[in-house]
């Protein structure tokens, strides 16, 4: 008898993440790709990739008639979750991230979960191993990955260079606006005045931290971070530490995959 495979697909605004697990929640492998369109084609390419021991499709996949092998189960989350026709379960990122993180931190019953994603940030409050409440940022992209993307694009610096730039800052600047567009204007004004790019990088991380923490108050206790922005900018943990000194902060392993992992767990 063949093993069962549980796939979690997180269709985010910037990246599609896929995690394959066993019925016990052990990760077999994971993969990711850019969110490109048509979405279904990109997802199919990821599921068929050599990153995984076998494809979930029993027939050559077509756009309209995917046949899923009997021992494969698929769940989707993220903004694109409703656009994949061959799933056995669909769930929001709120629940998916909660399931993924709760599995990793089994002994934690009460904590706050902060997921900073490509286009939104969420603070999820967990009590007695259940989601008590959640708050998502409002309409503006400030405090999300899109904010970092936009600013780096305007400043013509590589996103991956941002952490090392920020560590070299020698002045603390403040970006006051809660709007990405206004923040860009502020940065340009600061740059025109001859300010160092390293100080701007620091200001950028300070800004994103503030915007996330403005979403709601976080009771003291443990705070666990998930999502792609934290995985790629772990330096942010220092900035959060400065603002949450009464809390214990943790960055989840493979934080970008927490949602996909949680989606897969929803099937087991």
């Amino acid at each position: 008898m063949s093993d069962d495979y549980y796939w979690g697909i997180d269709l985010g605004s910037s990246a599609i993440k896929v995690v394959l697990i066993t019925s016990k929640g052990e990760i077999i492998n994971k993969s990711k790709g850019k969110t490109l369109f048509p979405l279904i084609k990109q997802v199919r390419n990821l599921l068929n990739s050599s990153d995984f021991p076998e494809s979930p499709f029993s027939e050559p996949a077509s756009d309209t008639d995917e046949q899923i092998k009997i021992n494969h189960f698929i769940a989707s989350t993220g903004y694109g979750r409703n656009h994949i026709p061959f799933t056995h379960n669909k769930l929001t990122e709120i629940k998916a991230h909660f399931l993924g993180i709760q599995f990793l931190y089994k002994n934690e019953s009460d904590f706050s979960l902060i997921d900073i994603g490509g286009q939104d940030s969420k603070i999820i409050k967990i009590k007695d191993h259940q989601i008590l409440d959640f708050v998502i940022n409002r309409k503006c992209a400030a405090g999300t990955g899109a904010f970092l993307d936009e600013i780096c694009h305007r400043l013509d610096i590589r996103l991956k260079d941002l952490p090392s730039l920020a560590t070299k800052h020698d002045k603390k600047l403040n970006l006051g606006s809660y709007c990405t567009v206004f923040a860009v204007q502020e940065m340009i004004k600061i740059l025109v005045s001859g300010e160092k790019i390293e100080n701007l990088a620091h200001a950028l991380y300070t800004s994103i931290t503030k915007r996330v923490l403005e979403i709601t108050s976080i009771e003291s206790g443990k705070v666990i971070f998930s999502g792609g922005v934290m995985q790629h900018h772990p330096i942010l943990l220092n900035y959060f530490n400065d603002n949450l000194s009464e809390h214990e902060l943790f960055l989840a392993k493979d934080a970008q995959f927490s949602g996909a992992f949680g989606a897969a767990l929803s099937l087991t």
């Binding site: 903004y79 769930l91 929001t92 990122e93 709120i94 629940k95 939104d120 989601i131 008590l132 409440d133 959640f134 998502i136 309409k139």
Partner: peptide, 15 residues
């Protein structure tokens, strides 16, 4: 925003 609203409502119903 249709997406944002649907996402919040669905997450709420999950809770």
């Amino acid at each position: 925003s249709d997406e944002q609203s649907a996402n919040r409502i669905e997450a709420f119903l999950e809770i």
